[in-house]
Structure formats: C-alpha cells, structure tokens
Design a protein around this nucleic acid. Structure first.
Length: 570
RNA sequence: GGUGGGGUAGCUCAGCUGGUUAGAGCGCAGGACUCAUAAUCCUGAGGUCGUGAGUUCAAGUCUCACUCUCACUACCA
C-alpha cells in the first residue's frame, strides 16, 4: 500500500467549467483517485476553487455582486457541478480560505528571508474610468506593427506579434471601452525564480514518467532563461501583503498577492482545511520531515498550467528552505476542442458542466471524455463521437452483456447462480484473456495512461460477449442443463467483474450492476489475485437480479437537437 | 517571430530504445447466432505512415529542408 496525494488544477471561479476543463484535470484526477483507492492505496484527493485575480472581480461586477458574495455563489455552483459528475474529492476547498491567506503570507515571509523576494517598480496601464490597473490582455488598441485596430495588449490577433500594452496606439480599456487610460508606475514584489534556475533544471531532469509535454515546456522556459515574476497585483480582492508580524506591508496597502502565487499554495491550505474537518494530519502529506517523504504526489493539469507547476510553485517550495513535498508525477493534458475549434461561451460553442449533466448522465460523459482523453494531442469533441461512445461501448458492449445474461439467468435459472457442470475450453479461454488483460489494465492505471486503460476495459467487456457466444448456454440448455449452467455461472461472475473494473470510470452504472449482483461494498475492491477463481467468485445459489436498462441510447434526433443548441457540425 | 506538440486506413487514434506481410475502435461489406437495449460473434475490403532529400543491410520510427495545424510565449488564469 502506498500513500498517494492527488491534486487537480484548481478550476477558476469565474463560471461553471466546460467539458474541456473537466477532461483535462478534475476528471482524470478523479478516475485515478478511484482506481488507486480500489487497489488499496491510501489516497488523498484535493481540489479547490481558484478565486482571486482580475477576471473574478470583473465577473462579480458583471453579475452585480460583491466579489466575496460572487465567489461564495460560484464555489457552491462548482462544488455542485463536481458532485453531479461524481468527482470524489476528499476535500474541495477555496483559495480564498483563511488557511490559504496565512500560508501564502508565510511563504512570502520565508522566501523574503531567503532573499528570493524583492521590490521593483514597473509601468502598467491604469484606467481612470474603471478605477483599476489593467492586465495586459485587458488593454486594447491599434497594433503598432500592422495597424489592426483591436489588438490586445499582450498580442495582436491579426499579425500575431507579441506586444507590450505600453506600445499600443490609441489604447482603451477592454473592460469599459474607455480611452481615459494612462501609464502609471507601480511597485511590486518579485519572486527571484532566476536564482533557482539550476536547481529547478536538475529537479526537472531527474523527473521520471512525466509526459514529454510537461518536461519540454519546463525545459523551454529554463532554456530561455527563467525571469523573475511579479507576485503581487494592484487589486483589492485577494490575499493581503503583510509583514511577518501580520501588519500590512508599507506601500502595499492596496495590493494583494498574484493569483498564481497563492493558487498552488491552496493545495496545501486545502489539505489543512481537510485535516481540520476530518481530524487528519496534513503535515504527513506535505512535510517530508513529518512522513511525506514516502508520499507519491501526483498532479493533474492542462498544458497551460505546466509552467506554474514545474517552475513557479516549485520555486516557492524549494526556495522556502522548508521541507515541503514536491510533485512526483505530473500528468499534463492537451485540450479538448469543440469540433476542432475553441470552446466559446459567447458563440454558443461547447457544453458546460451544468448543461452537460442535463443532457446525459455523468457516466456517459466520464466514459467518453476518458476514452478520448487529450493525452497525446488536442482531442476533438463531436456529438457523433459522443454518441458512438455511449451507444457502442456502454449500451451495446457493456449494457447489453449485463442485460442478456442476467435476463437469461432470471428466466431459466430462477435468478440464482447455478451450480453443476464442468468447465471446459471456453472457460479456459476467458480465463486466459483475463490473466493477460487485468494486469494490463492495472498497469495502465498506474501509469496514468487513460486512453489505454479505457481501451483495455472495453476489451475485457467485449471478451465477455465473445465468451457467451462461444459457450452459448442457450444452445446447451436444450440438451444438457448442467452444461448451460457453467456458461450462466461464468457469465454472471463476469457481470460482477465488469462492474468492479468499471467503478473508477462510471461509478453510477457500476454501482447499479454490483447492487443487482448482490456484491457487498467491501467485496468491490481490486484484488484479482487468483484469476481462474473469478469465474466462481459468486456463491452458488446466490440470488442476482437483472438491472434496469443501464444506458439509454442516443438517437440521431438528439444529436441534431444538441448541435443546434450548443454548436457543432458546421 | 521564438519554442513545443501533432500531421498514420472514410472518422478518432495506438505504434517503446529503427528490424519479418503497419495495428485498434467506429464506419462499411459478407456470414453466423437468436440469450439480449435490431444487441452480439466471425470474416473481409480499405493506408506508397504530410512533401522532398539524406543516414543505414534495414526508417512510420533517426537527420535536414519544406508544408499544414494546434498550443505556449511570463500582467488572462
């Protein structure tokens, strides 16, 4: 048994997340957490909402709410959406929690004591109309390079050139449209990432098992030369910048920490909150001098988060000179795209978690998104592919298998696991299949190769159908009931097994299957020691029932309807 | 502009350190079965592995050039 700490990149607070966000961090982390629990590991799965930053303030303003109130509302909405999708967080915290305030301030203090934080003045665009400094992307104007009149401050969408907002011609606020903007000097704290460049590179080089996506992004930044990063912002909502005695730092009364400085620290703070709530010991998971040295820490995130998790956050942890646990396995995903393009709320392209759950059960989404996880490259979501996943994989291969054998057992064997008969070459065949496929399945989960794990899961289900065709109990039944009993018994045991291996991915359907088969909760773990015995695991005479239809099929009319509502197909 | 992915059957994708006739699922064609959600099982057709050079006894796999595409590019998060 190992102790496995799992974190998912924190979903940002400014709205319910779309299916790409779900597929790239929270969902795979959940599937992995569930699989590892079934394998008997001690798992702690932590997530939280990421609540600070300019977009949160603007979204609150748009909603006509105060920021704190807005974040309360959206945190609850995201927690509900996570519950709808059966995300099995051990704790779903908030980056705005008091624990994170204290811990973020603590990190700033110890980093400054290590001479890794300094003050520096920079120029930033200030909007008088909005009464706030504008992040680069919130300043628009005419591109000095190509004269495009709606260039963003960081990059021109027309010519693609990287820009500095200070260079824009006729700049205006993207928030209000006001041209009453000026350039002001502002003083900020900077994290001296450059000083840790060599240690970070050595650490990245020593990593094993990370996707090349993760290491190559980290090395790219290191190769270009790590720049120091401002870790404070001119905002009111966020974590105040303090002195070690708790008072506000002089000159920083109107500033807070940058969201990307405090967000990853919230992984730890949320663990503290988990501990406070459950009586657990957070240090055992995060402090290497308190037991965390034997923790396997796995992070899940989209590729946009890699630099922060491989460079910035480790700078905070290593630079503190305190014994913090660093990530061991970093699983980075590409994007799920919408028919090859971007998700877009304004253009009604794409589905968000709250809408998705009203269209189809969470199991359907979980299966499809994991079977098509964007592991090697961006993966296109289409309604047509979604329907194939649900209809073919879930309804036809798994659902129909469960249905056909349980109904037959109910009709011919009184709904009981039959005894009698002797096993033959068909049973030897399916046993051999399981002996190669079950270990492969576990290996794929342990390696966090989700597409392969799903493929193997499906292959095991399909093997069940193949077995039934070979064993054909309905044929034997006419002449030799005992011979039929062998096939029905094996078939029912396969149903139970299929439910057991389905648990990480489709927990609802798996639960229905296992309940119908009368498998007690404590017998649902992944102990496949004696594989031949799996065909006779259910006691003979044990009563089983035929569950209701597990997966309804998606009709062409549904696809047409959804494509109209949410885009797609164009 | 820079950097990193990716371009493999109609579609979505596997193909580890180069090595016999390039794989899977879906789709398609034919057949089998009838327990089952017109489900399942079997067989088959389909690819000069983006383009052009090069290294090698041997390249989808390595090198170079070109091309298309996606992402990142540090104050969006």
């Amino acid at each position: 048994m190992s102790r496995i700490l799992i974190t998912s990149a924190l979903p940002y607070i400014n709205g319910v997340k779309h299916m790409g966000n779900l597929a790239g961090s929270m969902l795979p982390a959940d599937v992995y957490a569930r699989a590892m629990r079934l394998l008997g590991h001690d798992v702690l799965y932590i997530c939280a909402t990421d609540e600070h930053g300019t977009p949160a303030e603007l979204a609150a303003s748009d909603a006509g709410m105060g920021v704190a109130e807005y974040c309360d509302t959206m945190h609850a909405a995201q927690a509900a959406a996570g519950a709808d999708f059966k995300l099995s967080y051990d704790y779903f915290g908030r980056s705005s929690a008091p624990s994170n305030h204290a811990l973020t301030q603590h990190f700033a203090h110890v980093l400054e004591a290590q001479d890794l934080i300094y003050e520096k003045v920079s120029k930033q665009v200030y909007s008088n109309a909005d009464g706030r400094f504008l992040p680069d992307r919130y300043v628009e104007g005419t591109c000095p390079n190509c004269d495009f009149d709606a260039a963003r401050g960081d990059q021109c969408d027309n010519c693609g050139k990287l820009l500095d907002p200070i260079d824009l011609i006729n700049p205006y606020s993207a928030v209000s449209g006001s041209k009453d903007v000026e350039i002001r000097e502002t003083n900020h704290l900077y994290l001296r990432q450059s000083a840790l460049s060599d240690r970070l590179r050595a650490w990245v080089d020593a990593s094993e098992g990370w996707p090349s996506l993760a290491t190559s992004i980290a090395r790219k930044w290191l190769d270009e030369g790590l720049r120091d990063r401002a870790i404070t912002r001119d905002l009111s909502w966020g974590i105040p910048v303090t002195n070690p005695d708790g008072s506000r730092r002089a000159g920083f009364e109107d500033k807070v920490f940058y969201v990307w400085f405090d967000a990853p620290i919230a992984y730890i703070a949320a663990t503290q909150d988990w501990a406070a709530k459950t009586g657990g010991d957070w240090q055992q998971w995060w402090k290497t001098d308190a037991g965390a040295d034997d923790v396997q820490y796995v992070q899940f995130m989209g590729k946009d988060n890699v630099a922060f998790h491989t460079l910035s956050f480790p700078t905070s942890l290593i630079g503190s000179a305190e014994p913090w646990k660093l990530v061991d396995q970093l699983k980075a995903f590409n994007w799920v795209t919408w028919y090859g393009g971007k998700f877009s709320t304004s253009a009604k392209r794409g589905v968000f978690m709250d809408q998705a759950i009203s269209i189809a059960p969470s199991d359907n989404w979980r299966w499809h998104l994991m079977a098509n996880a964007p592991e090697g490259d961006d993966a296109a979501f289409t309604w047509e592919e979604f329907a194939v996943s649900v209809n073919s994989d879930l309804a036809n291969v798994l659902g129909n298998f469960v249905n056909r054998i349980t109904k037959y057992a109910a009709g011919k064997f009184d709904g009981k696991v039959p005894s009698g008969g002797t096993e033959g070459e068909d049973e030897a065949w399916i046993t051999a299949e399981l002996e190669t496929r079950l270990p492969a399945l576990i290996a794929h989960y342990e390696a966090r190769e989700f597409r392969k794990a799903m493929e193997q899961t499906r292959a095991i289900w399909a093997a069940g159908n193949e077995y039934l065709t070979k064993a054909a109990p309905w044929t034997h039944y006419k002449t030799d009931v005992d011979a039929a009993a062998v096939g029905v018994r094996a078939g029912l045991n396969l149903v139970a097994l299929f439910g057991i291996i389905a648990q990480p991915i489709i927990p609802d359907a798996a639960g229905k299957i296992l309940n119908a088969m009368g498998i007690p909760e404590n017998n649902r773990t992944w102990n496949f020691g004696d594989i031949p015995a799996l065909l006779n695991a259910l006691p003979e005479g044990h009563a089983v029932s035929a569950p209701d239809v597990l997966f309804s099929k998606i009709e062409d009319a549904d696809i047409t309807d959804w494509a109209t509502k949410f885009g797609g197909g164009e």
